[in-house]
Nucleic acid binder design. Structure first.
Length: 419
RNA sequence: GGGGGAAUGUCCCGAGCGGCAAAGGGGGCGGACUGUAAAUCCGCUGGCUAAGCCUUCGCAGGUUCGAGUCCUGCUUCCCCCA
């Protein structure tokens, strides 16, 4: 079916913006979306206190779902996280404690408040936790109820299982059951909230299909699955990893400034694709931006950074980050919006070896790393490249604004103030 | 139950006759060149207020001046036989 032929705004939009990898029954989903409100869900792991940009594609789909007149469900995997999703993982995941999981869910929840409209209307978003039903099942009950609907023969054919076995890596029985739990999630959501659509990354296809089938068998109703392509950078790398670690969505784990920088540093070749996926700009505008020649493409990257940051952190934080970047990179000024760390005045009075200070404020991962950077000419104090490992930093290094600027490379910049 | 293999730097893959902070890649970071891009070239890629000290090769012991390397036991995985 050609993209233009889609009747529903929902399917048409996702298609046009590059979200769609596979759909279980595209025509039927399109029809259902054109006829009325479709309730759809995406499951999120609760292994960390924040989601990262790897989940952003999924989040954007929930936004579009709601924007185009349907109802999104955010399903937190409180129950499944106790088991650990083995899908396309080489090694088993560690099991997590309930209290930790609950804390993670609470933290993740804060991000969704800005991204989706949670209200009582027909398209109001809702958030659920699969622990609510999964932990309630008794073993025999679960086996009797759902066991008959799955065959080992079939389960072994799913790539997620097959590849693990082929690579001769262990797959525990616990993990093997993961796909059953995810299928049951879909069923429960169908019963509780009339959910008919599950979306996810392409690696979730097998799990999603299982859910679609379970709903069809037990509810005698057609359900849909939709997966996104794996989003990689033009360099072929999985998206969202930087030296500093994952690109978190929670501001307390990655500052809006760094988040803005992440998008600003997008490779030329990725700009158009990312604008379509991670902003809600009109496609016509994006088409204009992505073909900007040479260095002008940087304007498109700023637009991308502004919009992407505004979505997650708000307009104000995005503007602040953009302004800080402008002053730091374009004018080379010390901006108070740069990440700032306070250091005891006494310490500066006495003098601190530069590598020790760099490590102390978290600019580098270790003082040894700082030393190496220093020797390689990669560390600057107040914009002057330093090479002396024994350089002492003192109060004399403070600038007119009472702060000193430490930078690793061109992009990792921090301010130090005495306290 | 019996026999044979495997586990290496907390990103990954992977070499390693008893002298090892441990070859070589990939990835990442820094530098040069640029446009806060890509490509290319060069450097770095255990920790420590550091000419020194400390910790690393699945786990626990042992032999030795000295163990990733040899011996014993254990754990996990793979293969063959039953």
């Amino acid at each position: 079916m050609a993209p233009q032929a889609f009747q529903s705004e929902f399917v048409r939009t996702l298609h046009a913006r590059g979200f769609v990898h596979q759909i279980t029954d595209a025509e039927a989903l399109d029809r259902a979306s054109a006829e009325g409100v479709v309730t759809g869900y995406i499951g999120f792991d609760a292994t960390a206190p924040s989601l990262h940009v790897g989940s952003l594609v999924q989040i954007m789909m929930l936004r579009w779902l709601q924007k185009t007149g349907h109802r999104p469900i955010v399903l937190m995997g409180g129950g499944t996280t106790k088991v650990g999703d083995p899908t396309f993982r080489d090694t088993s995941r560690v099991m997590m404690e309930g209290t930790q999981i609950a804390a993670n869910i609470a933290s993740i929840r804060t991000v969704f408040g800005r991204l989706l409209a949670f209200d009582d209307g027909p398209t109001g978003a809702i958030m659920l936790d699969n622990d609510d039903w999964l932990s309630g099942y008794g073993y025999l009950e679960f086996l009797r109820t759902y066991g008959p609907h799955f065959t080992i023969n079939r389960m072994l054919t799913f790539d997620s299982v097959r590849l693990r076995l082929e690579r001769e890596q262990p797959l525990s029985f616990l993990e093997f059951n993961y796909m059953l739990m995810q299928a049951v999630d879909f069923l429960e959501l169908n019963r509780r909230a009339g959910c008919r659509l599950q979306m996810g990354g392409s690696d979730q296809w097998g799990n999603i299909v299982n859910g679609v089938e379970l709903v069809r068998r037990l509810q005698e109703q057609q359900a849909f699955g939709l997966t996104t392509p794996l989003i990689t950078t033009a360099g072929g790398a999985k998206m969202g990893k930087t030296a500093a670690g994952a690109v978190w969505l929670n501001a307390d784990m990655l500052s809006p400034y760094d988040y803005w920088q992440f998008w600003r540093n997008t490779a030329d070749a990725d700009v158009g694709r990312f604008l379509r996926l991670f902003t809600e700009l009109e496609l016509d505008d994006i088409a204009r931006l992505e073909v900007l020649p040479g260095a002008e493409i940087n304007e498109a990257k700023k637009v991308l950074a502004n919009h992407a940051t505004a979505l997650v952190h708000g307009r104000e934080a995005a503007d602040t980050a953009a302004a800080a970047a402008e002053s730091a990179f374009v004018r080379g000024e010390v901006s108070s919006d740069l990440p700032t760390v306070e250091v005891a005045r006494d310490q500066l009075q006495a003098g601190v070896p530069l590598p020790v200070l760099a490590n102390q404020i978290g600019l580098t991962g270790s003082s040894s790393e700082a030393r190496r950077l220093l020797q390689g000419g990669g560390l600057r104090l107040n914009d002057v490249t330093q090479t002396d490992v024994n350089r002492l930093v003192t109060l004399a290094d403070l600038g007119p604004e009472g702060a000193l600027k430490l930078a690793v490379g061109k992009k990792k910049i921090m301010l130090v103030r005495p306290a």
